[in-house]
Design a protein around this nucleic acid. Structure first.
Lengths: 161, 161
DNA sequence: TAAATTTACTTGCATAAACAAGTAAATTGG
DNA sequence: CCAATTTACTTGTTTATGCAAGTAAATTTA
C-alpha cells in the first residue's frame, strides 16, 4: 500500500511555505533593526493606504478576527507605530492612526519585503506565480470571514476586462 | 500613485489560504467528535507511516523545530493519541508510539481530510494545483530547516524519471 | 421612550510558532 | 580516562490565532 506523503499534502505545504516566507521577512526586519512583525506589516499596509481606519475595518480588510486585531493594535501601540482615537460620531469605534514613526518606516519596510520576496521566489516564473496566487485566493475565499476581500478584487478586475 | 494591494501580496495570501484550510479541517474534526488538531494530524501521518520515531525524526520530517514537537507531543500524550518510551540504546532519545486510539483514528481522519480538501479546492484544475504545489515546495525549501524534506522528495522523483 | 437587540471592541482560555537558554546523556579527543 | 563538545529534549518568553463570553454604546422596536 502506497504511503500518504505529507510532502504532497496541500495543508502541509501551505503551512511550510507560509512560515518560510513569514520567517524570512521577520528575520530581514530584525536584521535591519525594525521592531515590526509580519502581522504588524499587514496592518501597516492598510494604514499606509488609508489612515484612520477603525479596528473593524482593519479586521475586514486583513481577514483577521476582531480579537486578533484588538491585540495586534495593543502591541503596535506599545511600539508606537500607531495611536488611537475614539470616533467622534460613534463612541464604540476606535480609529487607528499612524504615528510619524509608523509613517516613516513605510518606504524602507516595503523595500525590505520586496527584496526578501525576490529571494524567496527566485527561480519561479511569473506565470507559475500568477497561477499560484489565483489558486491561493480561491482557497482563501472559502473562508467565509475573508470571502469579501477577494470578491471585491474580482469585481474590480472584471471592470477592467 | 497606485496603492500596494495586500490582496496580491504572496505572504498575505499564503497566510490566509493556510489558515482557511487549517480552520476548515479543524472544524471538520471537531464536528465529527475528534479531539485532534491539524498539527496533531501532521505528526500522526508520520507515525501512521512509521511508528516509533524519535522526536528529532518527527521534527525533521514535519519541518517543525524540536521545541514545537516537544510541546505537541506533550499535548498528544494528554489526549492519549500516543505514548512515549526511552530508547534502549540512547537514553537521550524518546521514541513515540501510537496508542490503539491513535491507530484507530487513521482511516476516519484521513477520510475527513480528503473530504474537506475536496470542498476547499473545488473548482481548481489538477494542473493549477500541481503548479501551486510545485511553487509552494520551492518556497518552503528556502527555509534551511526544512530544506531536506523536499530535497529527499526531489531525489526520489528523479529516480523514477 | 424604554426594553431588546445589534455592534465595536476586549478579555480569557487553548493551541502553536520562533528563539534562547537550560539539562542530561553520549561522543570526542587529548 | 576524563574534560570538552555535541546531541536530544525541555522550558521560558514573546507573538499570534480561534472561539466564547463579556462590556458599553448605538439602534431597533414595541
Amino acid at each position: 500500500m502506497s504511503q500518504y506523503r505529507l510532502e504532497d499534502a496541500l495543508g502541509f505545504l501551505l503551512g511550510m511555505a507560509g512560515r518560510s516566507l513569514s520567517n524570512s521577512v521577520q528575520r530581514t526586519f530584525s536584521e535591519h533593526g525594525y521592531n515590526v512583525t509580519t502581522e504588524h506589516w499587514i496592518i501597516l499596509v492598510q494604514l499606509w493606504n488609508q489612515d484612520g481606519l477603525t479596528q473593524l475595518e482593519l479586521a475586514e480588510r486583513t481577514g483577521k478576527d476582531q480579537a486578533s486585531v484588538s491585540r495586534l493594535i495593543q502591541n503596535m501601540l506599545n511600539r508606537e507605530l500607531i495611536y488611537r482615537m475614539k470616533d467622534a460620531d460613534d463612541a464604540r469605534c476606535k480609529r487607528i492612526h499612524l504615528t510619524d514613526s509608523g509613517k516613516d518606516q513605510q518606504e524602507k519596510l516595503m523595500e525590505l519585503v520586496k527584496q526578501t520576496l525576490a529571494e524567496v521566489t527566485e527561480g519561479i516564473t511569473e506565470e507559475d506565480m500568477a497561477t499560484t496566487k489565483r489558486v491561493l485566493k480561491k482557497i482563501a475565499s472559502k473562508n467565509l470571514a475573508t470571502n469579501r476581500i477577494f470578491e471585491e478584487v474580482d469585481r474590480k478586475k472584471g471592470e477592467n476586462e
